[in-house]
Amino acid sequence: MIYVILFFEFFKVGLFAIGGGLVTVPFLFDLSEKYSWFTAKELADMIAVSESTPGPLGVNMATFAGFRAAGIPGGIVATLGLVFPSLVVMILIAKMMDKYSCNTRVQRVLDGIRPAVIALILSAGIEIARMAVVNLKAVIALVVFLLVIHFGKRGPIFYLALSAVAGIVFKI
């Protein structure tokens, strides 16, 4: 049964890809060797497509591979398989968090982690910047966006839509 195999294979990816996003890539390469759902080159293309389409890479990749293997139902089954381990683990963690979040030892650990997570977010921003800010025009756009966002009062979705229009108008 192709659906069972798809669910199970992506369940494994979801379970072992700790950290998410690009961490799923090596697991997906293994899948491309084991099955004929997609080739390694298609995976590389898909990573590029995922950089510029909404949504997490892992989900995009599961949908794509599932679709290749067994049409639209395949895409849905593979995505559900990928998401299922997170769903279960995070519900358990959410239960524990409510119980232990006031514990002083847990507080101390979280105190240490918060600045590190800010660094993680910054390094993710730098990764995206390396791909996106490639010429002088892009640098100018970045500075303009920073000023508009910092002094503006709108939500992020407004700026994202605005930046898509700006991208087309100014050929960024």
Partner: peptide, 25 residues
Amino acid sequence: YAFGGVRICVVALILNVIYGLWRKN
């Protein structure tokens, strides 16, 4: 082109969030 603009906006949004988080944390 549209995605080129969006990606730069994402960088700007992330930097803006980091600035706020830095000041608070």
